[in-house]
Design a protein around this nucleic acid. Sequence first.
DNA 1: ATCTAAATTTAGAATTATTCTAAAAAGAGG
DNA 2: CCTCTTTTTAGAATAATTCTAAATTTAGAT
Lengths: 128, 128
Amino acid sequence: MTKYAKKIREIIEASRDHKTAEQIFEALKKTYPTVVRATVYNNLNKLWDAGMIRKISSEGLPDRYDRLERHDHLMCRKCGRLIDVDLGDLTQQLQQRLRVPILSYDLKLMYICEACRKKEQEEGREES
Amino acid sequence: MTKYAKKIREIIEASRDHKTAEQIFEALKKTYPTVVRATVYNNLNKLWDAGMIRKISSEGLPDRYDRLERHDHLMCRKCGRLIDVDLGDLTQQLQQRLRVPILSYDLKLMYICEACRKKEQEEGREES
DNA sequence: ATCTAAATTTAGAATTATTCTAAAAAGAGG
DNA sequence: CCTCTTTTTAGAATAATTCTAAATTTAGAT
């Protein structure tokens, strides 16, 4: 594992805010100011292929990266805001009903966040 | 609802193969040969905002669209191949453990498909 | 019908995240 | 200190999607 891969992994493991490649690039520059974007993408892909980090893809927004530690996500349907939640490990329950062995699962719960709910209400008022 | 939105919705509801915007564009051209891509994107976004279709975002691959009917997905971690599975409605079980009301949830089970498993084995042999 | 306003479509440019390419640099092992 | 492999770099290229502004269609009111 190269110094870049290692540091990128550390950044992701330490974070709770679902960083984008760009944000990881910015964070990495604090330690290695001359690093380029391609290095970040190369390593993110390598780490993901190796199953060492999570990747969260969402509608419209750039991919975000996350630590492995078991948890699920609450995602705002409007703005993409992500919040960590833990709904327990469903692996057993799910695997029982499938023939193929599953490596992992992603559970994304859609909701409308506070900010977007307010915005909706205001728009509703205006239109009336 | 315009004729385009209506037809796009029909295409998606009738499909079981998780079409991309491009594939929907191609399918739509059979009925409306002069339609342009932007119209497809406009309508897909509108239908999705209205909660009338599902959107499946995955790592690297373009977004795919899906009918609403309750089901989950088995996704190959290597190539993105999608298979429909039904693991039952977990809404109750999940909602119980959350304070905010959830609109829906996406459950994506990661596995390695047959084709990718074979490819892995062959690569393993070569390297040895 | 006819007018007006709002919504939709069109064409094509623009954006943006990400990947690719080829050359340079860094590492690893003998 | 060579040789081979891997990684990084710089910058061009790609590809999906969004944006813009003008043209067209639609819907409601007159």
